[in-house]
Amino acid sequence: MGSSDPNPDPDLDSVSRSRTRDAHAVSLVWDDGREETIAVGRGETIVDAAEAAGLSVPYGCLYGACGTCTAQLLEGEVTHVEVPRGLKERARERGFVLACVATPESDCRLRVGHGIQAEVMGTPWK
Protein backbone atom coordinates (compact mmCIF):
# COMPACT_ATOMS: atom_id res chain seq x y z
CA MET A 1 0.00 0.00 0.00
CA GLY A 2 1.08 3.53 -0.57
CA SER A 3 3.40 3.09 -3.60
CA SER A 4 2.64 5.62 -6.28
CA ASP A 5 1.21 4.51 -9.60
CA PRO A 6 3.80 5.25 -12.30
CA ASN A 7 1.13 5.63 -15.01
CA PRO A 8 -2.02 7.16 -13.53
CA ASP A 9 -4.95 7.20 -15.90
CA PRO A 10 -5.68 10.92 -16.54
CA ASP A 11 -9.37 10.13 -17.01
CA LEU A 12 -9.77 8.92 -13.43
CA ASP A 13 -10.19 11.34 -10.54
CA SER A 14 -8.09 10.84 -7.45
CA VAL A 15 -10.74 8.86 -5.59
CA SER A 16 -11.23 6.50 -8.51
CA ARG A 17 -7.48 6.06 -8.83
CA SER A 18 -7.13 5.32 -5.14
CA ARG A 19 -10.09 2.97 -5.43
CA THR A 20 -8.40 0.94 -8.14
CA ARG A 21 -5.13 1.01 -6.25
CA ASP A 22 -6.08 0.67 -2.57
CA ALA A 23 -9.73 -0.28 -2.63
CA HIS A 24 -11.24 -2.85 -0.35
CA ALA A 25 -14.20 -4.98 -1.26
CA VAL A 26 -17.07 -4.10 1.06
CA SER A 27 -20.16 -6.29 1.02
CA LEU A 28 -23.35 -4.57 2.12
CA VAL A 29 -25.96 -6.94 3.50
CA TRP A 30 -29.63 -6.00 3.98
CA ASP A 31 -32.03 -7.84 6.29
CA ASP A 32 -34.09 -8.99 3.31
CA GLY A 33 -31.12 -11.06 2.13
CA ARG A 34 -29.89 -8.72 -0.59
CA GLU A 35 -26.10 -8.41 -0.75
CA GLU A 36 -24.05 -6.03 -2.89
CA THR A 37 -20.28 -5.72 -3.00
CA ILE A 38 -18.65 -2.39 -3.73
CA ALA A 39 -15.08 -1.13 -3.94
CA VAL A 40 -14.32 1.46 -1.28
CA GLY A 41 -11.14 3.48 -1.80
CA ARG A 42 -8.61 4.33 0.85
CA GLY A 43 -10.04 7.09 3.06
CA GLU A 44 -13.35 7.00 1.24
CA THR A 45 -16.43 6.58 3.41
CA ILE A 46 -18.73 3.63 2.92
CA VAL A 47 -21.72 5.93 2.39
CA ASP A 48 -19.89 7.89 -0.32
CA ALA A 49 -18.84 4.70 -2.09
CA ALA A 50 -22.35 3.25 -1.88
CA GLU A 51 -23.81 6.46 -3.33
CA ALA A 52 -21.22 6.41 -6.12
CA ALA A 53 -22.24 2.83 -6.88
CA GLY A 54 -25.90 3.83 -7.02
CA LEU A 55 -26.87 1.96 -3.86
CA SER A 56 -29.27 3.58 -1.41
CA VAL A 57 -28.12 3.41 2.20
CA PRO A 58 -29.52 5.50 5.05
CA TYR A 59 -27.66 8.62 6.10
CA GLY A 60 -28.31 12.04 7.57
CA CYS A 61 -25.68 14.51 8.79
CA LEU A 62 -22.65 12.98 6.98
CA TYR A 63 -20.29 13.94 9.82
CA GLY A 64 -20.87 11.21 12.38
CA ALA A 65 -23.26 13.09 14.67
CA CYS A 66 -26.66 11.63 13.88
CA GLY A 67 -26.61 7.84 13.81
CA THR A 68 -28.98 7.47 10.84
CA CYS A 69 -26.30 5.48 8.98
CA THR A 70 -25.63 3.04 11.85
CA ALA A 71 -24.40 -0.26 10.38
CA GLN A 72 -23.20 -3.51 11.90
CA LEU A 73 -19.71 -4.74 11.07
CA LEU A 74 -19.99 -8.48 10.45
CA GLU A 75 -16.48 -9.20 9.14
CA GLY A 76 -13.32 -7.17 8.60
CA GLU A 77 -12.12 -3.88 9.99
CA VAL A 78 -13.11 -0.24 9.53
CA THR A 79 -11.90 3.01 11.06
CA HIS A 80 -13.84 6.21 11.56
CA VAL A 81 -12.34 9.22 9.75
CA GLU A 82 -14.22 11.54 12.11
CA VAL A 83 -15.29 11.00 15.71
CA PRO A 84 -18.51 8.93 15.63
CA ARG A 85 -20.26 11.21 18.13
CA GLY A 86 -23.68 9.80 17.28
CA LEU A 87 -22.72 6.26 18.31
CA LYS A 88 -22.98 5.11 21.93
CA GLU A 89 -19.90 3.44 23.43
CA ARG A 90 -21.99 0.33 24.16
CA ALA A 91 -22.93 0.14 20.47
CA ARG A 92 -19.30 0.54 19.33
CA GLU A 93 -18.34 -2.32 21.63
CA ARG A 94 -21.00 -4.48 19.96
CA GLY A 95 -19.55 -3.86 16.50
CA PHE A 96 -21.77 -1.06 15.26
CA VAL A 97 -20.20 1.67 13.13
CA LEU A 98 -21.32 4.89 11.45
CA ALA A 99 -21.05 4.27 7.71
CA CYS A 100 -20.96 7.99 6.84
CA VAL A 101 -17.58 8.41 8.55
CA ALA A 102 -16.29 4.81 8.32
CA THR A 103 -13.66 3.64 5.84
CA PRO A 104 -12.52 0.02 5.47
CA GLU A 105 -9.10 -1.14 6.60
CA SER A 106 -9.66 -4.56 5.05
CA ASP A 107 -12.26 -6.27 2.92
CA CYS A 108 -15.37 -6.42 5.06
CA ARG A 109 -19.06 -7.20 5.35
CA LEU A 110 -21.53 -4.76 6.85
CA ARG A 111 -25.19 -5.13 7.72
CA VAL A 112 -27.00 -1.99 6.59
CA GLY A 113 -30.57 -0.69 6.61
CA HIS A 114 -32.85 1.93 8.14
CA GLY A 115 -33.85 -0.17 11.14
CA ILE A 116 -30.43 -0.68 12.69
CA GLN A 117 -30.36 2.72 14.40
CA ALA A 118 -33.57 1.95 16.31
CA GLU A 119 -32.36 -1.58 17.08
CA VAL A 120 -29.23 -0.13 18.69
CA MET A 121 -31.15 2.47 20.70
CA GLY A 122 -34.02 0.21 21.75
CA THR A 123 -37.44 1.57 22.73
CA PRO A 124 -37.62 3.37 26.10
CA TRP A 125 -40.21 2.06 28.56
CA LYS A 126 -40.77 -1.07 26.48
Partner: peptide
Amino acid sequence: APNTYYPGFDL
Protein backbone atom coordinates in the same frame (compact mmCIF):
# COMPACT_ATOMS: atom_id res chain seq x y z
CA ALA B 1 -27.13 18.42 21.99
CA PRO B 2 -27.69 17.20 18.42
CA ASN B 3 -25.40 14.22 18.96
CA THR B 4 -27.61 13.27 21.93
CA TYR B 5 -31.11 13.53 20.34
CA TYR B 6 -30.13 12.83 16.70
CA PRO B 7 -29.39 9.10 17.15
CA GLY B 8 -32.62 8.42 19.07
CA PHE B 9 -34.10 8.69 22.55
CA ASP B 10 -32.22 7.00 25.39
CA LEU B 11 -33.38 7.27 29.01
